[in-house]
Design a protein around this nucleic acid. Structure first.
Lengths: 210, 210
DNA sequence: TGAATTTTGTTGCTTTTGCAACAGAAAAAC
DNA sequence: GTTTTTCTGTTGCAAAAGCAACAAAATTCA
């Protein structure tokens, strides 16, 4: 999910004007935040990349969302009450703008630029989130591991405007993202190669069909 | 997904003030709309209920979303390009407000009340969509049919503030909503009954645990 | 009301997926 | 540069899910 307004202006201006927004730095594998009901965090990933991860009672790990530069996250986007722990984990060094708000729709007393820009762009911001989530649902509703893989590869291929692309996930993480068993996924990738649907060199995939 | 501002005011006012918004009536099994890229429809379900349905190349039917009174839908919420057909089908008689916009963020020339109220409430509206979609993803990432069923039942139980509740889906539709095979789902429901997790009378479910 | 259609419930069989375990390769840490 | 850890690739076996088909029940239609 990418924010279209100028995020660099955003980052430059908030410090002088608003005390409700903080910029923090996190390092690989650190927990940036855990989702807690009613603690209304709104975060912008300034640099780096991170995952929203859920651990369920059976010990399964699911990558719910993957965030890269300029993506937004936080409880504001996840009001649903869940029994499971939801963590945002840094995959590498990450700079994050964190804003804990009382009411995201109303402006702060300071009437600072941060809130002005935020409220102006909130619909667009959230709308792009909806797009991401719909894409994710489309993948998850596919009935077989093969279809999930091909759906995901297609997506990357379209984004990259090329039949070849690099996986940004490790295969272990990809399995957790597609919500399937890793070894079963590996077996399926093997079959896709053997049947001539794809080519795979390290983490570079090439689609051989269409 | 429920809209909190007064939708009845909304409906009352648009007709006199704005020619870009239409109210239409649909009957059971009619197609309310099909999602087409760049035709930016924004719809509000005034009464009745409907499903967003996807048919894939393998002949599988998936209920992507279920809409009831006051839910909103349309291409504005589904920018992702998909290969599959996406239809909104009426489950019963439905009244729908349809608004085809050029730019949902900008006000129309008439400066009518409809657009004023719409733009004021757009963030909240879309945010509630995000909540719905996250709930859906949580269900879909569950690894077994049993966990999907229990997750869905839990949700209904929480909404209803009771261990007992009625299914609004037929079992055939529920399978399409959870994205699993119907007969496998039926087998699982049977096991849940036999193992004493749930009780089922017609379309009334009672949770016997927790 | 009676006929037609849809939904529910069930089963045998097949295919897919998950689990557990392990070895080698690659990457990270020291 | 060596050790430790993580990731990849693979397999045999078990469990779960899908497919196909059918009868009975319920619902809709005419």
């Amino acid at each position: 999910m990418n924010v279209n307004f100028n995020i660099d202006d955003f980052i430059k201006n908030f410090q002088t004007n608003c005390n409700k927004v903080q910029k923090k730095t996190f390092y690989k594998n650190q927990v940036i935040t855990s989702y807690i009901e009613k603690r209304n965090q709104f975060c912008i990933l300034v640099s780096g990349n991170a995952d929203l991860v859920r651990y369920d009672l059976n010990g399964n790990r699911t990558i719910v969302e993957h965030f890269s530069k300029h993506d937004v996250f936080g409880e504001v986007f996840y009001t649903v009450s869940t029994n499971n722990e939801l963590l945002v984990e840094a995959r590498e060094k990450c700079e994050v703008l964190i804003y804990i708000y009382d009411d995201i729709h109303s402006k702060c007393k300071n009437n600072c630029k941060f809130h002005q820009v935020l409220s102006e762009n909130l619909p667009e911001l959230i709308l792009s989130k909806v797009t991401d989530l719909n894409m994710r649902i489309e993948l998850l509703t596919k009935r077989s591991i093969r279809d999930k893989l091909l759906g995901y590869f297609n997506l990357l291929s379209n984004r990259n405007l090329s039949k070849s692309f690099y996986l940004s996930f490790s295969l272990t993480d990809l399995a957790d993202y597609l919500s399937v068993d890793r070894s079963a996924m590996m077996r399926e990738i093997k079959s896709l190669k053997e049947e001539g649907f794809i080519d795979k060199n390290k983490n570079r995939i090439t689609l051989l069909y269409k």
